[in-house]
Nucleic acid binder design. Structure first.
Lengths: 169, 169
DNA sequence: AGAAACTTTCAATAAGTTTTGAAAGTTCAT
DNA sequence: ATGAACTTTCAAAACTTATTGAAAGTTTCT
């Protein structure tokens, strides 16, 4: 198989996965491209490889920097900016978990805390039942938050090591 | 606070979270509505509560059944179908993980396995570097898959119990 | 200060996704 | 076999999100 073809396959597949998880397809593709690139790439390289406009490239590169998945890299004698991906995927995954937890889980958690400490007006029995459900969901969400925090704080060994001992007991 | 208002807040917030994770907003809202409903609801109840069309309600209820997050419920003497949510969120979460793993992680894993056992044509050094990157990503993806499988198989106690002992050691 | 090299912004447009609603399909009771 | 009750389908419309490209902005060099 041609190397170029294999690269495209990797980039496409990574893009599809991203879009299924609510991440802009182009952003995932830029990430994929940088992941498999040894050399730091500049905006023009990325535009050319992925066939996208300058604006689109710029916006998605900024987003990746923002997530901490890509770093700026300056080459001596070159004026433009180059970019490299965080190549350690465990580090990258932890950043994604941390960030999504903050952006997407915490607002729900806040809503649940608020509802949990509010008194409702309405049919007494219905209020009782609703409060019970909210409390259940809150417990679950807090537990999930705790689990994710633990993962973010844990080190590579935990991830690389066997998980067998962690479950079922 | 009015009970009705609180219900809307819960439903909206759950809908936003879903959409951020690549799940149709209406589907999350139907799920939220069923989660906080003691009684089983029929299509018309859901249409009325969420102000959506019959087609939309039907399509999203089917999807939730498909994910195993909602069950059909028949009421004696009633001809129409009623629906209830799986109220145990740990059970629901495991189903979601299992399903997303299958639908969204496994295709990437397959791509990585294929690329990993393919010889590439092209500049020798570039091929070597690309293969190394693919191997790295594959290792990470397999490890993630293993971790998720463990979670899916683990029991509630593991989730409810303290995670402290699991990390950092 | 001016010009070149580069990055960012943003309004217009394109692409993609979701929703609707009416028609077709199904099931069940008589 | 018919009709009422209910569910499913699907093409068209509405809505949302992503992308473009040209203009504006910034930085660096002489």
């Amino acid at each position: 198989m041609e190397l170029a073809e294999a690269r495209q396959q990797f980039i496409q597949s990574w893009g599809v996965m991203g879009s299924q998880w609510g991440i802009n397809r182009t952003m995932s593709q830029v990430h994929a491209l940088l992941l498999i690139s040894e050399e730091a790439l500049c905006a023009d390289d990325i535009m050319a490889e992925l066939n996208i406009s300058r604006g689109n490239a710029n916006m998605n590169i900024r987003a990746l920097l923002d997530w901490g998945l890509v770093y700026k890299h300056f080459k001596a004698g070159e004026r433009k900016e180059f970019f490299v991906a965080e190549k350690d995927l465990w580090t990258a995954a932890r950043k994604v978990i941390k960030e999504r937890k903050k952006r997407e889980l915490e607002p729900v958690l806040d809503m649940l805390e608020t509802l949990n400490s509010t008194e409702f007006t309405g049919d007494e029995e219905k209020v009782r039942q609703f409060s019970k459900r909210v409390a259940d969901v809150r417990t679950f969400a807090r537990q999930s938050d705790k689990l994710l925090s633990g993962i973010v704080k844990s080190d590579r060994k935990w991830f690389l090591g066997g998980f067998a001992r962690l479950f079922g007991k």
